[in-house]
Amino acid sequence: MSSYEKGWKEVSIAGVCWLPSTKYLTGDWSPYKPVRDKAKCNKCLLCHMYCPDGAVIWNSKAEDIEFNYNFCKGCGICANECPQGAIEIILK
């Protein structure tokens, strides 16, 4: 345990959480990551629906799909399910 952790007088009552898990990056769990061939992609969004980690994001301004590698665990579901064969899993 390190000294920056809060003492008992400072910790939240009843163990109420005070940090969002978005500060806990899980992107380094895997040596793999998905890459997308934009030319093949028809933006059907199945990759977004099937991502366990919310790491396939629909950017509505750019009207495009983005991978958030901070959280992608490299499971490969998106590549496996892509009807266009537009996603490939590669070694980081």
């Binding site: 952790e5 809060k6 003492g7 008992w8 007088k9 910790v11 009843a14 163990g15 109420v16 959480c17």
Partner: peptide, 22 residues
């Protein structure tokens, strides 16, 4: 929103129990 009932391991469980004693 708040989260009540998180997994509280060796890094904080003890502190929460000490609060209860207080």
């Amino acid at each position: 929103p708040i989260t009540i009932g998180a997994l509280d391991l060796y890094d904080y469980y003890f502190e929460h129990k000490r609060q209860q004693e207080e």
